[in-house]
């Protein structure tokens, strides 16, 4: 029996430019589904971009499609991290870099506010203690 007898054929879509694998497109649908979940249940979700077989050109394509939003957050913590809202509110493009500027991990987080931006209650307590001390010294 030849393989042609099987009525299902795999057709790999031809990439439109070198380096583009076609793996980024399904992510847009996944993000749309994640947004629906956020709206219905308030649940934050994330996609780990470094765990997927995406070429640098795929990532560029995805970034370009999602566009730039209004908010860009910069975090200085062992290297710079950027948490940028895309043109779709609630969809955040998060890039973590080390001190040498190399990307250590990259995520798309779907949430109203990225987890990392929120202050931890313990840190707020420390900040308040500091402030109290400051006031008592005045």
């Amino acid at each position: 029996m030849s393989i042609d007898a099987i009525p299902i054929h795999v057709i790999n879509p031809l990439p439109t430019e070198p380096g583009l694998t076609g793996n980024a497109l399904p992510l847009l649908r996944e993000i749309s589904e994640m947004l629906r979940r956020l709206l219905e249940t308030g649940e934050s979700t994330a996609i780990d971009l470094s765990a997927l077989p995406l070429t640098p050109i795929d990532l560029e394509w995805l970034r370009e499609k999602l566009g730039e939003g209004e908010i860009a957050v910069t975090l200085q913590a062992s290297g710079e991290s950027t948490l940028n809202e895309t043109a779709c509110p609630g969809v955040w493009w998060i890039t973590h870099r080390n001190e040498n500027g190399a990307v250590t991990s990259q995520f798309i987080e779907v949430s109203f506010v990225p987890e990392l931006v929120k202050a931890h209650p313990e840190d707020v307590k420390i900040g308040r203690d500091h402030l109290e001390l400051l006031i008592s010294d005045l």
Partner: peptide
């Protein structure tokens, strides 16, 4: 530390959250 753990979780193939 959180940033470090996020990267570590990513590398350990744990869910991003």
């Amino acid at each position: 530390f959180l940033k470090y753990c996020a990267t570590l979780a990513s590398m350990m193939a744990l869910p991003p959250t």
